[in-house]
């Protein structure tokens, strides 16, 4: 598991999904972020860098 998502902190702004170069992330039905294609993650850290809510971390 390379992505750690703290769902309680996520407000569903979608910034991480928009800046993910591999379309790993998407908003769920209840507007929380989830990793839908985690196998494509290249651990670039764009999501962690841009998340305003400290809700997603890349574990290297």
């Amino acid at each position: 598991m390379s992505l750690k998502i703290i769902t309680e902190r996520c407000k569903g702004c979608g910034i991480c999904a928009a800046f993910c170069p591999k379309q790993v992330l998407a908003l769920s039905e209840i507007e929380k972020i989830e990793a839908v294609h985690e196998e494509n993650c290249i651990k670039c850290g764009q999501c962690e860098l841009r998340c305003p809510d400290y809700a997603i971390f890349v574990e290297k």
Binding site: E8, R9, K11, G12, C13, G14, I15, P52, D53, Y54, A55
Partner: peptide, 10 residues
Amino acid sequence: LPHIWCPGCG
């Protein structure tokens, strides 16, 4: 946390 700022606030 979570903080009070709106979704997507910088």
